[in-house]
């Protein structure tokens, strides 16, 4: 579904992605892990076109996405820290996005309902807590039933109940054949939802393996330990 070929990106002198090659298929939840600054967010933003790569290519169904924008209708994005125009109300943000995406056939308001966002519709974005903002971000990411979801640290800041709701939503969407990329540090969470783990280190792919495969390779029952073991090996 998504193929990343020789992706390179540097911020000034700092090289964040060095010839990254990886591909993801449909119906999978892929957890992107790696130490801070490994390039996880950058990779996500490259796929979305928010960050422009220095070299390499990103293909969606065999088509390069570089310099294009229409493909983004197939991607739902939930940023690590949602930043919204401070003086807009929740309702206005949601209505605006829906207005812009009028051509979308299906509108999925499940998360709006589950998070009870409508009761807070008249609150200004600037007045919201980080967690509530994350709820809005999540609702927006899933809203237009995209084929691909890129969720950057989705549960950080969410209360346990909200996190559970999100996890079940992720699993539900996976079943509908979607590709979901999640960056996360929480191993239990990864174990709960992910099928595969992709590990980035210093801008390069360390490994990309199914969870079962990782456990087998490291001979460890607990995912966290298994991953730590594999990373120490090299």
């Amino acid at each position: 579904m998504i193929t990343i070929e020789n992706l390179r990106k540097s911020y000034g002198k700092l090289q964040v992605l060095k010839d990254l090659n990886v591909s993801f298929g449909p119906g999978k939840v892929v957890s992107v892990i790696g130490p801070n600054g490994a390039g996880k967010t950058t990779m996500g933003k490259c796929i979305l076109g928010m960050v422009l790569p220095d070299g390499g290519d990103i293909k969606l169904d065999g088509q390069s996405v570089l310099g294009k924008h229409a493909y983004r209708s197939q991607i739902g994005y939930m940023p690590q820290i949602g930043r919204y125009p401070e003086n807009m109300k929740i309702r206005q943000v949601i209505e605006m996005i829906r207005d812009i995406r009028k051509d979308a056939k299906e509108v999925d308001e499940e998360l709006i309902g589950l998070y009870n966002l409508k009761s807070m519709y008249e609150k200004r974005m600037g007045a919201l807590s980080g967690g509530t903002k994350q709820k809005v971000s999540a609702a927006l990411a899933f809203m237009f039933n995209p084929r691909i979801l890129i969720l950057d640290e989705p549960t950080a800041g969410l209360d346990p109940i909200a996190a559970e709701i999100l996890k079940s939503k992720i699993l539900k969407e996976k079943k509908r054949g979607k590709l979901i990329l999640i960056t996360s540090h929480i191993m239990s969470e990864i174990e709960e939802v992910a099928d595969e783990v992709m590990c980035l280190m210093d801008g390069q792919l360390k490994f990309h393996e199914t969870i079962a495969g990782i456990k087998a390779q490291a001979n460890e029952e607990r995912l966290g330990r298994a991953i730590a073991k594999i990373m120490e090996e090299d």
Partner: peptide, 17 residues
């Protein structure tokens, strides 16, 4: 500068920058 968030929000949408 105050519209940065607004633009970020839109950039993730299928709209030409």
């Amino acid at each position: 500068y105050n519209s940065y968030e607004f633009m970020e929000l839109l950039v993730a949408q299928p709209i030409n920058r």
